[in-house]
Amino acid sequence: MRVSMDIELKDVPGQMLLALQPLSEYKANLITVVHHHQKRTPRKTVPVKLILETRPESIETIKAKLEENGIRVVRVGEHRFRESINVVLIGHVVHTGIQDTIDEIDRTGFAEVVDLSLSMPGINMLSSALMKIDAVGKEDLQKALAILKEVSTKKDLLMVLPIDIQA
């Protein structure tokens, strides 16, 4: 399973190695490491987000090993979404109910709108939205896009999809 883990490292050399050792020891596959160097915690530690793939039974052991190494584990959660895309919507995005458009995707349970940028240059002008959608798998993503396409047609919105997605 894929797991996301928020940890905190002390701001001294060699900490990352201490964090990675238990992962390698228990054969967890490290997918991403995001090192938030700019964002110190009040405890003066550096927050780091890990995404890893591992057997469910190893999670508790890895967590204990990390804590043994003096690394604070803030949160462990299942990372459900593997697929992610950006979609642009152009038209009367807001007046036709942006919340409703988002709900249609979120309601599926297998996909979620996780980010939204919106630009409304003026009344009677077309608005533009860039939506980031996460989905559990590739097929779910296609299903979510089919729903979004239907909503877009109904609301007369232009949907701009990435080139590598089957439109």
Partner: peptide, 27 residues
């Protein structure tokens, strides 16, 4: 067929900020 008449500069800009351009693609 869908053309480009609805594309807005704001959409182009938002896409660009995320590393994309918008092009009329035939497939």
């Amino acid at each position: 067929v869908t053309g480009i008449t609805k594309v807005t500069p704001e959409a182009l800009e938002m896409a660009y900020e995320r590393g994309h351009v918008i092009k009329l693609i035939g497939e």
